[in-house]
């Protein structure tokens, strides 16, 4: 039943493997000794040799790659150059903050987008539909980090309705801290999803099973909300799954703007300190996140759409 999903997952793993290898080789291909860059020009030769050995950089490249794969399979992403802590630990400590933010963003934007799109499809070519369409296009165009900055300026600095920095403590405080960044990330998705749902809803409403449902006198509400919408939202799941990379990118900026802990903040901080193992680890985890979310979207689609379970 799940052979399609497993094949997709296999392909995803292959992509992940290629991505990791490319990443690894890219880091090694950079001109200049990474150790020297990391330690700065004033480091002693002993210290440099020590770090080179610690990072395994004295080995030939293919061996480094093999060791890297081996460690990776054991969930070991290396060690932080400065603190000596495991990169895996550091990354997974930050990951929940990012996931929380992405989840909140998708939750509000998908709910609103689906509602808007379904409404527009039920009243096509009315004034409200046109206004919704214009707003959708404008929202799609708004880059998350600019929205984040403007939201920070207006709602946190000037109106002081919401906190400006951090992730908060305790459920309500955390939720309070989520509002502005999730708003900024989700805004462009509202318009995007609304347009998607409108188009797919109009298509589904024209299919003959909808005519059948109506011919049996099933209430129009139920026809729209159950018979048509359940099919019309299927592409939304796929789009969100594939859009995970985009969401992550937005999250990076939102984390910087609102000084929230998370993967984005971690990466930026490690880039400024040239902490390559952490950069590598975060990029890897976020790539994996993307691959997993695409596979997850396939699975959810299979759950929602019985045809997808046996198709392919």
């Amino acid at each position: 039943m799940l052979s399609f999903a497993t094949r997709r997952f296999g392909l995803s793993l292959l992509i992940l493997f290629v991505a990791v290898t490319v990443m690894f080789l890219m880091i090694r291909a950079v001109p200049g000794d990474p150790v020297q860059i990391m330690l700065g020009p004033r480091a002693t030769p002993e210290l440099q040799a020590q770090l080179t050995a610690a990072l395994g950089l004295d080995q030939p490249i293919w061996k480094q790659l093999l060791i890297f794969y081996g460690n990776l399979l054991q969930g070991d992403l290396g060690t932080d150059v400065f603190s000596g802590r495991s990169v895996t630990d550091i990354v997974f400590q930050q990951l929940p903050f990012t996931l929380e933010l992405i989840f909140a963003s998708i939750l509000w934007s998908a709910s609103l987008g689906i509602a808007l799109g379904a409404y527009a499809a039920a009243h096509p070519n009315t004034l409200i539909d046109r206004i919704a369409a214009a707003i959708s296009v404008s929202f799609v165009a708004a880059p998350a980090f600019v929205v984040a900055l403007l939201a920070l300026l207006v709602f946190a600095v000037h109106l002081q309705w919401f906190p400006a920095i951090g992730a908060g403590e305790g459920f309500w405080d955390r939720l309070d801290h989520l509002v502005l960044p999730a708003f900024a990330i989700g805004l462009s998705w509202v318009g995007y999803i609304a347009r998607l749902v409108r188009a797919s809803m109009l298509e589904v409403m024209g299919e003959s099973h909808v005519r059948t449902a109506r011919a049996f006198g099933i209430a129009e509400r139920r026809v729209v909300m159950v018979y048509a919408l359940r099919i019309a939202i299927l592409p939304v799941v796929t789009v969100i799954g594939v859009g995970m990379g985009f969401l992550l990118s937005s999250a990076v900026f939102a984390e910087i703007v609102f000084a929230r802990p998370g993967l984005g903040k971690l990466v930026i901080d490690s880039i400024t300190t040239r902490n390559y193992p952490i950069v590598m680890g975060s990029v890897l985890i976020s790539t994996a996140l993307f691959v997993v979310s695409t596979a997850l979207a396939d699975l959810i689609n299979a759950l929602l759409d019985p045809r997808a379970r046996t198709a392919h």
Partner: peptide, 16 residues
């Protein structure tokens, strides 16, 4: 009044 439509492949809702 009931109706049986032409194309049986399209006449039922695919996800229910």
């Amino acid at each position: 009044i009931s109706i049986v439509f032409q194309d049986p492949m399209q006449t039922h809702n695919p996800v229910l």
